[in-house]
Structures are given as C-alpha cells and as structure tokens.
C-alpha cells in the first residue's frame, strides 16, 4: 500500500527532480525580477534618495510579478501530459498532494526570488535597516503568493488562455500581503519597530496555509474539467 508521507515526499521529490533537469527555466523568473528592477532607475531617476524611497515597494511588486509569472506552470504542465490525473486518482488525500506540489513550486520559484532580493535592495540603495525585514517578509509573502496562486492555477488549469486570467484572479487577493510586506520594510527604514506588521504577515501566511491547500484541491477537481 501507499503511505501518506511516501506520497507527499514522492511528489516533492519528483517536482524538484524535474526542475533540476530544466535549470534554465529556474533562472527565468529571477532574470525577470532583475530586469524589472533595473527598469526602475532608468524609468524614474538614478538618484539614490528617490530610489531608496521606492525600493521596498518596487522590490515587492517585482517579486510578486516574478512569482506570478511562474505560477502558470504549477499544474499546467502536469495537466498537459496527463500526469495530473494520476495525482487526482491517488487514494491519498488530494489536498496533501497539492500542498506538496505548492511546496516544491515555492522552493524553485519563491525561494530564489527571496534569496535574490538583497542584491536588488543594494541596486536600489535600500538602507541597511530594511534588508532583514525584506528577507523575512518576502519569505512569508512568496509562500502566500504560491498558496493563493495555486487556487487560481488550479481553476484555470484546463483553459487555453489561462495565464492572463490567472493573474486577474489572484492579484486582488495579494493586496494585504503587499501592504504588510512593504510597510514592514518601510517601518524598519524609518527606524520604527516592524514586529507587529511582521506578525500580521505571519498570521496571514498561517491562515492561508490552513485554507489554500483545501481550496486548491477543490479547485483542481473542478478545473480539470474545463
């Protein structure tokens, strides 16, 4: 018989192995992130004071777009080759397998963006105090992006022009995380404590972790029949 943990780690292991065999694809969201942030000084002003004022928001928005870009692929590739059906017909609970897929997806798309963000903070002259809350906030925030995004990705999995629709569905839901995330960095830069904001962000992430896998599993059962 299959086991719960076997199936859970089996899914993570498979998705990570596939990602490792397409390493080039892994870099694409990162380059996107880098290019968007490069456009900011070109489009606005290279003056460090102005850049620093906009850095928290710009980095967060670019990170949001970069993860959004990769969201498409969460279920779509498995749907296209038919392996999604095997996932859904497993006797193991679907929400757990979906959670495994989300975790694997976050490891290859969200985490690199988080690790990359200090470099972009440097490029946008983010004051030193902002780096830690940026890293912490993006870690929690990209997790929420992946979790909530999974619901949208599941709903649009079988649709032909799903990716634009997907952005339309999930971006409004990202608003609170963006607000909490950027203000945590802003408060740190302004010399205020950011613990409370970070706690709100953590609470939002925990809450999302609680509901999103179930919603995404339900969405997948619906979306696969698009």
């Amino acid at each position: 018989m299959t086991t719960l943990s076997g199936a859970f780690f089996g899914v993570i292991h498979r998705d990570l192995s596939i990602a490792m065999r397409h390493r080039g694809d892994l870099l694409n969201p990162l380059f996107f992130f880098l290019i968007v942030v490069t456009l900011v000084p070109l489009g606005i002003s290279p003056e460090p004071a102005r850049l620093a004022a906009m850095a928290p928001g710009m980095i967060w928005i670019s990170a949001l777009l970069a993860t959004l870009l990769a969201l498409d692929n969460l279920f779509q590739a498995d749907f296209a080759d038919g392996s999604l059906v095997h996932l859904m017909l497993s006797p193991q609970p679907l929400w757990l397998l979906v959670l495994a897929k989300i975790i694997a997806h976050w490891l290859v798309t969200g985490l690199p963006v988080v690790l990359f963000s200090p470099l972009l903070g440097l490029m946008l002259s983010l004051p030193e105090a902002g780096f830690l809350p940026l890293l912490l906030g993006l870690t929690l925030g990209t997790a929420v992006f992946s979790l909530l995004g999974a619901v949208g990705a599941a709903l649009t999995v079988a649709l032909h022009k799903g990716s634009v629709l997907l952005s339309l569905l999930v971006m409004p839901l990202y608003v609170p995380v963006l607000i909490f995330g950027t203000s945590a960095v802003q408060r740190a830069v302004d010399g205020m404590s950011y613990g409370g904001v970070m706690a709100m962000l953590a609470a939002a992430s925990a809450f999302t972790l609680l509901i999103a896998p179930f919603a995404a599993a339900g969405a997948l059962k619906v979306g696969i029949n698009g």
Binding site: L148, V151, G152, L155, L173, A215, A219, V222, G223
Partner: peptide, 9 residues
C-alpha cells in the same frame, strides 16, 4: 469554479 473563487474572495 466561480463558487470556489467567490468563497476564497
């Protein structure tokens, strides 16, 4: 599909 999205919303 809409019901799920509306509930998440």
């Amino acid at each position: 599909a809409c019901a799920i999205l509306a509930l998440v919303g």
